[in-house]
């Protein structure tokens, strides 16, 4: 269960050079653009775009293999469930019915359902590379500053920074506590009965939480003593300067975001692209 928070690696690509604030803004704009649209052509376009960026930022497949497996499992389960629950959902969205395959009872495959489900899978899938790019090319130090930059109150942004700072410590504590409890005879494997699993989990969680509560007190004292929360604003040591590249990136993202809205309003007349009428 060793997980590195962001496996951020220091290499020099145009994407790495962008400020964290820019990357966060672009990530949000593009994510909302694909979330809003149900136009498969637009979604394919964004997907292609994000794969190019993935290439540019020199992210290796090995870095993201695990994520891709998780996502695939999710997408397949979701696709099966959707079909089981609402085989006619596409028909009700697009208002026409072109049957492809008769299975049995109410389970018939239609072109409309196929389009709806394919669009949905692509829509989910296209968000993933965007998130991956953001996570793997942003220096964690810059993360809090960026959150503050897009309008999140700085205290909340700092809380996120504390999460990143103390997650490895807490992970190590957890490991220590769990080993110590095992040495006293705690059964951690699947052999334990259901009722005792709740209890066993508690034997580890309780010391973890209580030692953390002590820590909260000493950290908050340390922060008070160094003037945290004194002013309405604060600056950030690791904030990067905004440069030309940043303007270009934001401009591009705003453009794509606008496209998503404009296509819906003027071309499709709704969030859905309907080729059936």
């Amino acid at each position: 269960m060793k997980i590195k928070l962001f496996s951020y690696n220091v290499i020099d690509t145009p994407i790495h050079r962008l400020s964290g604030l820019t990357k966060l803004a672009c990530f949000l704009l593009l994510t909302f653009a694909v979330m809003f649209s149900y136009d498969i052509r637009f979604i394919l376009f964004v997907m292609l775009f994000s794969f190019i960026i993935l290439k540019v930022s020199k992210i290796k497949f090995s870095q993201i293999k695990l994520m891709i497996i998780y996502v695939l499992i999710f997408l397949i389960t979701n696709a099966i469930l959707t079909f089981l629950f609402e085989p006619e959902y596409g028909v009700s969205i697009y208002g026409t019915r072109h049957e492809v395959l008769r299975i049995f009872g109410r389970y018939n495959l239609t072109q409309e359902q196929l389009l709806y489900q394919t669009t949905k899978v692509l829509k989910y899938a296209s968000v993933i590379p965007l998130g991956i790019i953001f996570l793997l090319t942003t220096n964690p130090s810059e993360f809090a500053a960026s959150l503050n930059g897009v309008g999140i109150p700085y205290k909340v942004a700092y809380a996120v920074s504390l999460t990143l700072r103390y997650f490895p410590d807490i992970q190590r504590d957890y490991q220590n506590i769990s080993q110590a409890q095992q040495a006293r005879g705690l059964e951690m494997s699947k052999k334990a009965k259901f009722g005792s699993r709740f209890k066993n989990a508690l034997l580890i969680i309780i010391p973890l939480i209580f030692s953390t509560l002590d820590r909260i007190e000493s950290i908050s004292n340390a922060m008070d003593l160094r003037g945290f929360g004194k002013l309405k604003k604060r600056t950030w040591y690791s904030k990067k300067k905004i440069e030309t590249g940043d303007y270009v990136a934001i401009g591009l993202s705003v453009l794509i975001f606008a496209m998503s809205i404009l296509i819906s309003i003027f071309i499709n007349g709704s969030r859905f692209f309907n080729p059936f009428i």
């Binding site: 964690p140 130090s141 920074s161 990143l164 700072r165 922060m223 160094r226 003037g227 945290f228 929360g229 004194k230 002013l231 604003k233 604060r234 600056t235 950030w236 040591y237 690791s238």
Partner: peptide
């Protein structure tokens, strides 16, 4: 998260 940031903490709070 880093030495630099930690040293700067009081200055950041002073804007």
């Amino acid at each position: 998260l880093t030495v630099g940031e930690d040293i700067a903490f009081a200055l950041e709070n002073d804007n």
